[in-house]
């Protein structure tokens, strides 16, 4: 249990319950809470990784986030979830018969081949300036993503 809590503490600047709280209650409850906190922290880390990637890639490709940043936030969350569960940011806006096989092939790992070759992003994460839905931002904050995705 101590190591679990320590791991949680180690996950960057995330708020962590004091040890005195952790020692209260039955071990199972603590273990469950610690595990949940660990999973949340891990996903938060993936969200942050994908957020930074998205900002960097938008700048590099001269593309812009959607005028409705909720779209951007949701896609980034989807990429983070796939990164967590599959090991790679598989495009969240497609249906796959075998996700693991698709990850291995890499065609739809973000940035997908259509995006890399033709700047076509059907997720509307990276939009060329001429796109009707394109906004003017190439930045999105972690807080913005958490707020937008918490309601779904």
């Amino acid at each position: 249990m101590t190591s679990t809590v320590t791991t949680t503490v180690g996950c960057g600047g995330l708020p962590v319950r004091p040890l005195s709280t952790a020692t209260r209650g039955r071990p199972r409850r603590c273990a469950v809470r610690a595990q949940a906190a660990g999973a949340d922290a891990s996903n938060d880390k993936s969200v942050e990784v994908m957020r930074k990637f998205s900002e960097q890639y938008a700048r590099r490709s001269n593309t812009f986030f959607c005028a409705d940043k909720t779209v951007t936030a949701v896609v980034i969350k989807g990429l983070a979830d796939h990164r967590d569960t599959l090991g790679a940011p598989l495009c969240p806006c497609r249906h796959y018969d075998d996700k693991a096989a698709e990850v291995a092939q890499g065609f739809w790992n973000c940035p997908c081949v259509p995006m890399r070759e033709r700047k076509e992003c059907h997720c509307m994460l990276f939009l060329t300036p001429d796109n009707d839905f394109a906004g003017k931002d190439q930045v999105i904050s972690f807080e913005e993503i958490k707020e937008a995705t918490s309601k779904f």
């Binding site: 779209v71 951007t72 949701v74 896609v75 969350k77 989807g78 979830d81 969240p92 806006c93 779904f152």
Partner: peptide, 12 residues
């Protein structure tokens, strides 16, 4: 409407 949880355009 075929959708998925974290598909951004689906929310739109």
């Amino acid at each position: 409407q075929f959708w998925a949880s974290w598909c951004g355009p689906c929310k739109m």
